[in-house]
Amino acid sequence: MSTKQSTLNRIRQALGMETQNEWPTVARERLVTYALLGIYVVVIWFPIYYIFITSIKPSSEVLSVPITFIPQQPTVQNYVDIFANRPFEHYTFNSVIVATTTTVICVTLGTLTGYSFSRFDFFGNKTLLLSIVGARMIPPIALIVPFFQIMSNPPLIGGFTGSLYDTRVALILTYTFFNLPFAVWIMKNYFDGVPESLDEQAKIDGCSTWEAFFKIILPMAKPGIAATAILAFIFSWNEFVFALVLTSSEVSQTLPIAVSLFVADDFVDWAHLAAGGIIAALPGILFGLFFQQYIVSGLTQGAVKE
């Protein structure tokens, strides 16, 4: 007789009236809700299930009719094969390095800058913030031509680095382009939610601005930092377009490219593609399962301003 009561009954009760037995309606509504959500979840997970079972079927079973929805001879051979026959350890390593470095850069700069935008009035701060946020609207694909030109022949640093085409550095630099503005924006919004009185108290206690930031505010911003880091990592890990444009060998190709390479002109090696695809999707799925609340809060902070 607690949460399950409807508003009408709570009011009836408050007025001293007799409550009505609404149990059948409430129960039916719940059942319908669960049923609808259940159907939805089953339908959207079916393709994931199908690609997963494809990855643990031998190639002969993958290409046989009628198709099987429960693998008859489960095997991990496809996973062994892709590491044995293709440089999948390189692809995985590249993905890890690129996504991690991009994340560290964006979180570090995003946190520092986000804090300043949240707390200080400085020359043109509103305009600067608006342009940083506006930069998120620039479609990355629109910039493939200049990025290809710039990375092939970098200005200023070119004499020192040579061409950056087909290097992990090119990918890292490029990925900061859509992750940094996002990081600044999430962190700014996050710091807006941390009471400014904390900064003031710290300063009264004799902290400098730096100390107040690093000792008091930064530890409180951990959830915001986690959200930013997870999203930046996922975005960089999954990125495809620039990797397609800026890389050409296993020196720098990442997992999304590796998976697409299973598609030859007229033949697709589905069993091995499925195994590679599962490896590429794994971090995202794991992050989703264990850090769902950070992903949700980061996206919400990033998209909607309170």
Binding site: V41, W45, P47, I48, S260, A281, F287, G288, Q293, I295
Partner: peptide, 24 residues
Amino acid sequence: GWLRTAVIVPWIMPYVMSGLMWRW
């Protein structure tokens, strides 16, 4: 919480992987 997790997973996977998955 679990339902929410189950529902958002498709968005977190690499788009390339999702595209190939649907091609399959």
